[in-house]
């Protein structure tokens, strides 16, 4: 079957994108125990930041613009935590309140981006052709290869960070029990700040890569976020492996699903996967 390699490639590409979103989302959930719906907006913000740089400083090095975009997304996430979530945590707000607040934040960021950059579709590559590689019968572009590589590298890197570094240990301590971590002397607010920075930065990278691959639109954040949420829950909220596994499963189910069922049902397929897991295995593939 000649399209099988292409379908597999498409699934891996989608999985890579979703993984980048899910990894950050999962990390934030592990540390703060709330579903940060504004996460999707971090991806959009990162993508548009890079776009802004590329538009304003013609001839700027692409990698530099991307790096700055990632940095911007990370800082934005950190700032949001500082300004909004930390305040709410101080008032002992329930997780649902944080969820609703994050929904509000998401809406604002998306609207502001749409106001500044218009709702029109933009591409980061500016129309420059992407080199295409033929791998095992499937056509994959350079951007897509980078996406998969980045997802793998970051997943591995995150795993290492959590296991080997001091910050990683602190994050795990906070994830296990925030109260106990405080008692032990860990500055939990600082750790959470780092978590938001790293998580949002990864999402920003995802947004930038999607911008190169298919393009940017202010509304892209919602669909990326929803995919990230599905991947996280399906894979197992709060674990790095969970985010990766969930993203992989989602990517494959979506793309092979389209093959059998028509393309327009993509969203329904993705959410049906979520519902199936919520009913039969709510803890996801990898338990915490």
């Amino acid at each position: 079957m000649s399209i099988l390699p292409q379908l597999i490639a498409n699934s891996l590409i989608a999985a890579g994108t979703y993984a980048l979103i899910a990894l950050g989302f999962n990390l934030i959930y592990a540390a703060t125990k709330f579903f940060n719906l504004a996460h999707g907006a971090m991806a959009t913000a990162g993508g548009y930041a890079a776009f802004f740089l590329l538009q304003s400083f013609v001839g700027i090095n692409v990698v530099l613009a991307a790096a700055l975009g990632v940095l911007f997304a990370g800082l934005l996430g950190w700032a949001l935590d500082r300004a909004v979530y930390r305040e709410l945590r101080k008032r002992k707000a329930s997780n649902t309140v944080l969820l609703v607040a994050s929904l509000g934040v998401f809406t604002v960021i998306q609207a502001v981006i749409a106001m500044i950059f218009t709702s029109q579709f933009q591409t980061l590559s500016g129309g420059a052709a992407d080199s295409v590689y033929q791998i095992g019968g499937a056509a994959v572009t350079e951007t897509q290869v980078i996406m998969i590589a980045a997802a793998v590298a970051i997943a591995a890197g995150l795993g290492l960070l959590l296991k080997k570094t001091l910050l990683g240990k602190e994050v795990r301590a906070v994830s296990d029990d925030e109260e106990v971590a405080k008692i032990v002397g860990i500055n939990t607010e600082r750790v959470i700040g780092w978590v938001f920075f790293i998580g949002s930065a990864i999402a920003g990278l995802g947004g930038i890569l999607v911008g190169f691959d298919t393009g940017l639109q202010p509304t892209m954040g919602m669909s990326l976020l929803l995919r990230g949420v599905i991947a996280s829950i399906v894979g197992g909220v709060g674990t790095v492996y969970g985010a990766a596994a969930g993203a992989l499963l989602l990517g494959f189910v979506e793309n092979f699903g389209i093959w059998k069922i028509s393309g327009e049902w993509k969203d329904a397929i993705a959410f049906s996967l979520l519902i199936v897991f919520l009913v039969f295995r709510p803890q996801g593939i990898f338990k915490r």
Partner: peptide, 16 residues
């Protein structure tokens, strides 16, 4: 978009 932004701000402010 302004309308959307206002709704978002409203939700955040209300929660806070």
């Amino acid at each position: 978009q302004m309308r959307q932004a206002v709704y978002g701000v409203l939700l955040v402010v209300l929660m806070l």
